[in-house]
Design a binder for these strands. Structure first.
Lengths: 228, 228, 228, 228
DNA sequence: GATGAATGAGAATTCATTCAT
DNA sequence: GATGAATGAATTCTCATTCAT
């Protein structure tokens, strides 16, 4: 056996349990140190296993990061979805989605930065599970808008994906200072402001003045005749 | 120790010239290889100097990257400004700024990714010259909007910085696929769409014209009578 | 990244064994080359391991040197102590300590020079384990002198630490030529001479002449009377 | 010409003047930074010349160090000698020499450390001018002792060189803490103590005075008779 | 004489990953 | 399954010294 007397090997755990423990340890360390400064040795130590054990469950360090972030993402979306289901009305739902995204950044700036810098910028991002998760995440925003379009609340002639980019890009751009750790931001204020702008950008156009004027003219002529 | 016999040292150049050559070589290599895969040795080789020479002019590899990107940025802004000066009208200027930013990404995706990933995410970004350059860059957009507000073309109750975040965040978010190298995007189409949305989000609410109000009043009175 | 195929990794050894082997190899190389000219690569090669292995057990090259010298020092003191225990008498013990120190220099001039030049002159010497070892080493000399003082063999009014400095400083100063490799010295002759001088410097003062003269006078008077 | 417009080359100075300036600058920098941390660039800068100029007057950095230390040494000995000449009496002269050496260490710990670590330990020390200077320096101590021997004040059977080693070795050993910068020492107290010990170690054995010898003889004769 | 731009050999160090036990 | 000792490629950076101008 590969263990020294006095160094009891970690108990043999059911695969799922072991994985959960490893991810918990990794999540902790990644949060504290970021990716580069986190070491496999430290994660293994915190999980109470040998370094080799990590490689039985994860391909490599980067894979471990991905799994940790996916796991975090999934939990986050679930929580989020539960709350979203209770909300009616385009503006309220939109506002919730925006505010919730800002809140995630507020709570987990390190993970958010890792997603943006280590994963999203990687060549293999498209094709990753996180890419899909992200799509699902943003899907809800797109759906909300699409419904509003069908209800006639929002105009139909805007490219949906650009609206999504505008919302998430704006949030991201606005919070970089916070993500870097050198600025703050106000979740609620920003959420309101963005929601307003988006709603305004998507509002159905007021009826065109010319057509309106012509209609009025015709009606007035008619009124004249009838009342004449 | 000085130069070895057999390897004639590179010609003695004035500081500025040498720096320009080194930056040209570095720009080339960074563009081809990105940051991590670029090696000092290769840059020096391409510049036709010894590796040590680089260190006479740049603190280290990262400093070299920063200087290269700053240089590129400055040139870009200058070109841009020249064209901008010729443009009148809020929409045209805004459209130009947006389109031009998209075009930069289109032309130099590698540098853009380097700025976003290697520099903007770094802890010392705020405080860097590039941060300042970026402010200057975005300033023009803010000024254009501010003028429009003063001209009464745009509403006054929107937080300027959020509009900036919306514009640049949207562009960035939209082009990540291209920056990664796994998607395309249409400069012109996107520029139009974003400009439209922004203008719409900022448009002053159509004031109910007096004539319209009067007409409605009359019609309502008539309706009252006819139905009375 | 792990081991390359084709290069079988060195046998997996228990920590202590491996460390012993590495130190043996390092001791060898440091003795042959000194510190600066010793390379990690050579030490690793001689130990039959990869370079990285050294860094599992020693922080860096300098730490390795320190550990090697400490190890050497400890062994030396132990051997020394064993012999010292058998010796009685102030002069014999003192002579042994002095001679033994000279002998160490004679046998290991390179290590001695490394201790004097690389370690003792370093800012963090005080606080190092070697500093403590050295104290223990010199302690025995101080104890010997102190006992002699209590036995009335040595005068009590000399600062102990200065005597220590005198002994070790003298030895060191005298052997620098040998340490540099450009002179010889005679262990035994020097040991005798230094011991003599130290003993003389510490000898209790001869009884005061006046008192002696008076005693003689009294005795002579007595003799006169008796023989008269 | 090798100079840029705006960078006036340093005035052409008489060789001796220029050398003096360069050494002054170097002395300054070596004192502040030690040897390794001193850079040729900084020394040249402080001297107001180009780096290459240093190499017209000194072979290399190490040669410059040597010259600086020699210069310092010479000045020091001269000052010292002037005062020594005024002193009469073995003990006073010895005390002066010891105290003066301690005072030098007190005033210039960095240079002293440089001499001990960078020069004295080097393979080519013997053969260097500093070695000769040092001999001259110590010569005075040897001469003083030798004279005392001839005057009958000191015993003749001690190896002179060992006495020298004892004096200077003791001082050096005692002051290492100060040289490293982690301890203090009291010039006067230490000077007294060392002088005392040395004088005691060299004192002629109290000659049995003739009177004493005669008395003893008589007493012994008497004892003989009485016991006979 | 003065300059200072150009040089480049050289070595320590890291740590994710492997695989014999 | 668990372990953790062994690995080693790969790269930055230094700065005293030279010599063309």
């Amino acid at each position: 056996m590969g263990h020294k007397p006095g160094h009891r090997p970690a108990a043999r755990l059911p695969r799922e349990t072991r994985i959960a423990e490893l991810m918990a340890a990794a999540r902790q360390v990644f949060r504290d140190k970021g990716y580069d400064d986190a070491s496999i040795a430290e994660i293994a130590l915190r999980a109470g296993v040998g370094e080799g054990t990590l490689y039985r469950y994860f391909e490599n360090k980067h894979d471990l990061l991905i799994k940790v972030l996916e796991d975090w993402y999934v939990g986050m979306i679930e929580d989020d979805d539960r709350q979203l289901r209770a909300l009616q009305g385009t503006r309220d739902r939109l506002h919730y989605l925006i505010r919730s995204h800002l809140a995630v950044i507020w709570r987990e700036p390190v993970f958010c930065r890792l997603v943006l810098v280590e994963l999203r910028a990687a060549a293999d991002y498209r094709g990753s599970a996180l890419f899909q998760l992200n799509r699902a995440y943003a899907r809800r925003t797109l759906d909300t808008i699409q419904e509003a379009v069908q209800l006639g609340e929002f105009r139909a002639d805007v490219p949906l994906s650009l609206v999504r980019d505008m919302i998430y890009g704006c949030i991201e751009h606005h919070t970089w200072g916070y993500l870097r750790g050198d600025a703050e931001f106000a979740v609620d204020g920003v959420a309101e402001a963005i929601t307003d702008m988006i709603c305004r950008a998507l509002a159905v156009p007021a009826p065109r003045p010319d057509a309106l004027a012509a209609a009025i003219e015709r009606l007035e002529a008619l009124t004249q005749r009838l009342s004449g």
